[in-house]
Every structure is written in C-alpha cells, then in structure tokens.
C-alpha cells in the first residue's frame, strides 16, 4: 500500500473567478479521495512571477502533481471532475 503523501501545486494569477473555482474544485476532490495524505500549495504568480518558469506554466490555472512521479499537469478550472481524477490518476489510488 503506497501511502505516499501527494504534493499538489495550483498556479493561479490573482483572485480571478477561474482560479477560485479551480481551488474550490480541487479541495473538494482531495477531501474526497486523498483525505489526510496530500499537501496543497497555491502559487499566485502575480506575487511570485519567477516561479512560472520552473514548472513551465503557461496556462492559468494549472494544477501540477509533483508527487507521486511522473509530473502531471491539468489546466483549466477543474470543473470536469471525471477528467481531473483520470488526469491525476486518482481513481487508481482510491481503489487500492
């Protein structure tokens, strides 16, 4: 059983509607599927523009799964739950 802690990072640019939406969606998914074993970091690029280059961020909002490897990126407001879970490979973890 891999009880590794997930590291997630959400890149936003200011308090835009899309960013807020994405953050809210993400939180709800994580609470459902990864409760207690995830770290969520929200990076506001307006405050820290130098961080955009490191993760090759172009689109806003972007969710980056740093751990477990490999790195995965999901762009958009994360409104499509099904796709987010598939994208993050969460379902598999959830079943195990």
């Amino acid at each position: 059983m891999d009880e590794e802690t997930w590291e997630l990072r959400l890149y936003v640019a200011g308090q835009t509607a899309k960013s807020m939406q994405a953050l809210a969606n993400l939180k709800s998914y994580c609470e459902q599927h990864l409760k207690g074993r995830y770290q969520l970091e929200v990076v506001d690029l307006l405050l820290h523009p130098q961080l955009a280059e490191g993760d090759q961020i172009l689109a806003i909002p972007t969710l980056v799964r740093k751990v477990p490897a490999p790195i995965r990126k999901i762009i958009g407001d994360l409104s499509n739950k099904e796709r987010v879970l598939v994208g993050l490979d969460l379902r598999a973890i959830g079943h195990l």
Partner: peptide
C-alpha cells in the same frame, strides 16, 4: 490535461 476554462496568463 484540460478540464474547463483557462487562459494563458502564465
């Protein structure tokens, strides 16, 4: 992966 609306503000 793309889910929902986004822009290229990054």
């Amino acid at each position: 992966d793309e889910t929902g609306e986004y822009d290229l503000e990054g």
